[in-house]
Design a protein around this nucleic acid. Sequence first.
DNA 1: TATTGTTATACTCTATAACTATA
DNA 2: TATAGTTATAGAGTATAACAATA
Lengths: 141, 141
Amino acid sequence: MISGNGLPDAVLALHRTTHHTLHALSVALTGLNLSAAEINALANLTEEGALSVGQLSAATGTKASTLTGVLDRLERRGYLTRELDAADRRSFRLHLTQEGAAAARQVHAAVSALEERALASLSPAQMAGYHAVITALQEAC
Amino acid sequence: MISGNGLPDAVLALHRTTHHTLHALSVALTGLNLSAAEINALANLTEEGALSVGQLSAATGTKASTLTGVLDRLERRGYLTRELDAADRRSFRLHLTQEGAAAARQVHAAVSALEERALASLSPAQMAGYHAVITALQEAC
DNA sequence: TATTGTTATACTCTATAACTATA
DNA sequence: TATAGTTATAGAGTATAACAATA
């Protein structure tokens, strides 16, 4: 109870839980040999999506300059391609390859499995409260 | 909406929000010139606390081997001391110095300010839902 | 034997600023 | 001029395994 509102601190709990879930996901996905940032990137990409680097940066909370290295590794592994956007040739569309899409599906499945295991017994109201807080924290930044 | 329960994905939102809040805190604390992990460590220490490395590791979600470097820097800066625990001489008690306690207070203040700014209009029920979800995610790992 | 914390290694993440190409 | 993304640099975070000291 740090914040004095009768509840444990929201932000510290957020950071702690992020560490724990990232670790659990990387254990669940040991076979894929992905780093936390790579998991986070793949989790935000889908076969249809084709985000730009900027959009993926916003979705993950990772800087574009950090994503460069992450995307380099995923590209080198054959998981995605960067294709020039014809509409704005400064930017790329990130396309998952078949292999990349398969890896992304495994990541999505691991995330879903973790959530189902953890959150099955929680009520819709609790989930809604969670998302309200998360959204408010994000928007205050 | 990734998880199919009508709500945006809980884990991805968690990671994204962590990135954003860490960045906002390091901006708010620019004068202290602290890294994210240093902020996270200081945020979990108080003048009375005197945690062991293992306890701080559990509180932050950071590995002990990572904390070694973080604590080295905080110690070099004169923010804390490691004192042998007489009761178990394998472990240390982490004591904040006066300077370290002052820095920790600034960190706590920045965290509280962010939370108040972000969460003022949310209901106790929403906050409780948030903590229920966070706790459940942590315990599932 | 098990545990606490550090060390060593090798890699990944991060911030920042400068840079290229395009708008 | 402004924006998208990369590059360069230097530092910080991470996992892992081996290690010392203590339990």
